[in-house]
Design a protein around this nucleic acid. Structure first.
Lengths: 194, 194, 194, 194
DNA sequence: AATGAATGAGGATTCATTCAT
DNA sequence: GATGAATGAATCCTCATTCAT
């Protein structure tokens, strides 16, 4: 009885192992062998399923982006009203799922990968556009014409938060990061309603 | 007449070549040989003067940080008043000298290097602290107790600006980045004086 | 049918090639590549199976020591009486298997390796102790209290024989070496029974 | 005023440094740079005076052999009678000057060098012949026809003593080594006069 | 599906040696 | 006489990738 559906399981294991390994090393300089071993298989099998190292990285990236996207969507579904929706996006960005040491390290490295891999850049640009669009749309009713500028600032604050946290030694502190960004949002809303 | 000081010349050439090479590749995955060749010497000489690859990277990092620091100091010297001083720091951060494709790529990679190299992290942390202190100090007379929070946000916006620009294909647009950050600053000042 | 045990075969081939190469060069200054080539494989595979150059050397050393030990044990098994046992050890030390140009060169180089490698020294010290113990034990019934002194002299004569032979250009002459050492033994026995 | 006779001083310094360096490393694998630095000069100058690395080694070897030879000659000059002369040679061989950790290591490495360098082998063979001749000649009046056989054994015991000492961790114990060899000599004389 | 075996290519690093000054 | 500068050549080692089984 050949075990059915081994492939998706293997791929998922590899993706997870990749993120863990990058997070641990803080670099893309991790060997396929190590990733495969952590995922409980031979490096040959990893190649079999993914084709090559970069493909493994891209799959890991896609996974991170997907998880983040799902988190945002989930938060949006429960949010009521424009402000709540914007705040939900911010909170989702610093949720315990995404704002973890290893995932932060992975993000940072994906930005680096995007410098040399067109495919990686494409993924990251899509993510950026979607985030920007979500924020812009949610902010329109709140700050009118400034919506996209504010959206841009919020996005930059989020990215900046990640970057700064990447240097921190302690556990990632999502709450403080959220407070900072929402503080800025409050300021903008204050002014808009003044 | 003994040939004077080949060493500082060589070191400077290597540092420059390193930044260029990292900028071009978008990675730290550049060979010492390529760097040396670009700097017009053998890789053996590069090792002779620096000891090893990481030392070369650290020297390049120190250089970038030093240039940036000088730029900030220069701008501060010409600024009159607290607000002007804060704005000067922001402008210096996006000056044409520092906010160039290759330097941005270098910064990004230095953040990655800091994940695995204690020496690199130390350098980056020092830079962060100094920036934060400068901003905090300049903002005190302007926003009082919120000074350090605002400073933190400005710093995050600057970092975020770099990160976002690293994905941009066109030439780096420092002016727009400055406008965004200063827009936020204006908002804070407005509220403080309200 | 999975191809069985390439590893032991490869390792054995490498060990053999290492001894041959050291014997030919008269130095530990042989490259892993040359060893691997002589063993019919890539240097990468040699590293894969052994980890590094020193590990290859240590394995070769262990092999030489093991072969010698087996030879001694075999000779002892056939020897009848104390004197015969001591003589068997001496003869085994200069057997055609061990007292060959390339093996002698290897021995010499292992002594050198032991100067800088703790692992190598350990191996050599163990071999020395065992030899000394064997001789001492065998000599006790023959020369009583002088046993260990005589054992020490015999061991020194054996080592000296190797060292002197390492300079000889002709084929190794085990018989003469044996005669010298046994001549000394006879002398001691003569005196003991006088 | 150009300093006269700098050359012999420099050469002597290099020779001394070479022996020290080999002794410390336990290998011929020492760099010319380190030797030169220890001797207080640039590696370029070392090459200037000696031509190349092997020449430096050969000079160091010649020095060790010369010092040893002088020691033997000095001891012989003071010895009265055949037995005293033979004993003098043995004692000189284990004198504090020659039987020191670093010199022992150098000797061992010279044997290795002799495997690949004809010049080194020549030096070592000459030393061996002279030692053998000296012993043989001194022993003739004492043991007659057995002289050269006994000489050979004594020489082997001396070499063996060096080899065994090279593995010892403590300070070299020349006295014990001398005792062992002279014990053997006494045995031969006893028999000869029986 | 899965893996051990195997390698080519490449890269950091070291070092003896040369040379201009 | 003396040295800093400079490099070509070599070597160890790693790793992504392929392939037969």
């Amino acid at each position: 009885m050949p075990r059915v559906g081994a492939e998706p399981i293997r791929r998922a294991a590899l993706v997870k192992a990749t993120i863990a390994e990058i997070g641990e090393a803080g670099t893309l300089d991790v060997t396929v062998s190590r990733i495969a071993k952590r995922a409980g298989m031979s490096s040959a099998l990893a190649h079999h399923y993914f084709g090559g190292k970069e493909d493994i990285f891209l799959a890991a990236m896609r996974h991170v982006l997907t998880v983040y996207g799902a988190e945002v969507r989930g938060a949006l579904a429960m949010a009521d009203g424009s402000r709540a929706r914007v705040e939900a996006i911010v909170r989702a960005s610093f949720s315990d799922t995404s704002f973890r040491r290893e995932v932060i390290a992975a993000w940072l490295n994906f930005y680096v990968l995007a410098q040399s891999s067109a495919a990686a850049r494409r993924l990251l640009v899509i993510y950026q556009r979607r985030l920007q669009a979500n924020l812009c749309h949610g902010l329109r009713p709140l700050v009118g014409d400034r919506a996209c500028i504010v959206a841009n600032n919020i996005a930059a604050l989020i990215d900046g938060g990640y970057l700064r946290q990447s240097l921190g030694q302690g556990a990632a502190d999502g709450q403080t990061a959220v407070d900072h960004v929402l503080g800025y949002l409050a300021l903008e809303l204050e002014r808009a309603t003044a």
